[in-house]
Design a protein around this nucleic acid. Structure first.
Lengths: 305, 305
DNA sequence: ACCGGTCCGAAAGTATCTTTCAGATGTGAC
DNA sequence: GTCACATCTGAAAGATACTTTCGGACCGGT
């Protein structure tokens, strides 16, 4: 992190409407202690905080006004005033909206039915958060690059590796030359081949997986258009990313590893990429899809009953 | 704060949340010309007005700041600031009100934001359906078998192959000897090794993927406990399955291949399996999870903050 | 036309928000 | 261990937005 940006910047992101709770969770790790206190208060009681002035919120959280403003900035608003407006909106929304539902964590002695319900609910929540927090401008830019790419490389290891594979499979199916790499060495070796007009995509929840950052950096240096799909929009990986797609982060616990929700989130982003690219290249994508569907037909037993 | 109320007061009325438009109509007759202009602007475009300062709104309506404040008072708020908050809330509310219109299929010319919303909604729906349709008895039986298995083989090809990998990775992480096979030949070769006490899991959406059925049959014949995760509870694969876990099938279309929703559904089932097994084997699973978490820590760049 | 009233906006006054800056606090190096 | 460095934090100054005051404009009645 050579370039010393003083205060944070989430980029051109427009003020989030309802994706606030999600944004707080996403950005919490990159916050300082005091800012986390503020963020926590805001996420915990939007309605209550909307009724407070900067000074009030500062006192409530035991911090200073400056910290409150800094937090508002980090969350993507120009200042506290705007955060407060968004908070009022959020409060009104969840007032009229749905009931709290089962927010409890999964316990060791939960009956099976509860586990199923909680997991399903959590994943649904993750999807909603991800969709709300996804920057459509960045997505559009990434789609445009993919649609005209000569060659596409995708990097991901561990759980993210499977997501990379998924994206690779999908893009291949609509006739794009995509390849997902799980082996870091091969990834770097291949990244060297990329040049302007090509696209490299790195998928990492932590945003700091060296094995994935390195090939992206190489691709970036060689002039390829680079995309990062990460849960940490301020992580090291974003240094080398032309376009950043942010996945959401759900609270995790011992029985619910982060990998679970990050995977759900990443897959939604991947689906969005794929679907939008298919739209863009419909003329060529549609027949390609039909063909791959045909090709699979005979792999299934004739009689399904 | 001298509390001598000079200007009008509507009495004890609490700040109206959403009944603002109505209140404007009710009070309009008792308003002066300038105030009506302000009220009209407010009722006509809450969102737009919420973005304006007193000065801005005064200019927009061709009046003065004082008039704007007077109007806010008349509507029952202590000042413009509070009216503005209410306005933001109202805007958010009617924004979310017209959101649920995304049930339509994804079209080739949908804007990006719609695609994201529709995909997220569809996947959420898929999760809800899957959770509702999952047989907890079958799930419990499968979990019991997995928890005590000597060895676990998982079969899946294509998109389901990635789900198989995901389950394999997860089970390995809690200390179970699981292996996911994508190569049908190797799968069969390995299936021969299985015997009573072992578990074989086949994942296939169509329920009729020969490459997956064959190894499951072999495992079944050798006395292993067999589990099928499929969208077709009556498909050929179930012939050789001791326990059947049903995934849901969402409507598909050209831009939304079945693979997308089946994958989501399968992953939820896999997560349920994993979580329940972890519960069951908590004594050994917990330390194993912690250890694998530790092992990964150093793969990330040191300073993330 | 004059007078009483109401309505209105400019400008002064005040609360709230934002920025600056220097001290406090941690963190890594040696 | 302790020193240097970078970062974090809050107090206070500065800027902005909101509120109040107050005098003039307008309008209908006499």
């Amino acid at each position: 992190m050579t370039n010393d940006v003083k205060e944070s910047f989430t980029g051109d992101a427009p003020p989030a409407p309802a994706a606030l709770a999600a944004k707080v969770r996403t950005l919490a790790p990159s916050m300082t202690r005091s800012m986390q206190r503020v963020a926590e208060a805001v996420a915990g009681d939007p309605a209550g905080c909307a009724a407070l002035t900067v000074t009030g919120l500062a006192e409530l959280t035991g911090t200073s006004e400056a910290t409150v403003v800094r937090t508002a900035r980090l969350l993507g608003y120009p200042g506290y005033r705007d955060l407060r407006l968004a908070l009022a909106g959020l409060a009104a929304q969840q007032q009229s909206g749905r009931a709290p539902a089962v927010t409890a964590d999964i316990a060791v002695d939960d009956p099976i039915a509860d586990v199923v319900a909680k997991l399903a609910y959590d994943e649904q929540q993750t999807l909603a958060d991800t969709a709300a927090g996804l920057d459509t401008v960045q997505l559009g830019a990434a789609v445009a690059a993919l649609a005209t790419a000569r060659r596409i490389d995708i990097y991901g290891v561990g759980a993210s590796g499977l997501v990379a594979q998924d994206l690779g499979q999908k893009l291949l199916r609509i006739g794009l030359l995509a390849h997902a790499h799980s082996d870091p060495h091969l990834a770097v070796t291949n990244a060297v081949q990329l040049r302007s007009g090509d696209v490299a995509i790195a998928i990492t929840h932590s945003g700091s997986t060296g094995d994935v950052i390195e090939p992206l950096r190489v691709a970036f240096d060689h002039g390829a258009t680079t995309v990062a799909i990460t849960g940490r929009p301020d992580g090291p990986v974003t240094q080398y990313a032309d376009h950043i797609l942010t996945t959401s982060t759900a609270r995790e616990s011992e029985l619910r590893p982060a990998a679970m929700s990050s995977r759900t989130s990443q897959l939604l982003v991947v689906d969005c990429l794929f679907t939008c690219v298919t739209q863009r290249t419909y003329e060529t994508a549609a027949p390609a899809l039909a063909a791959s569907y045909e090709a699979l037909a005979h792999r299934h037993s004739p009689r399904t009953r």
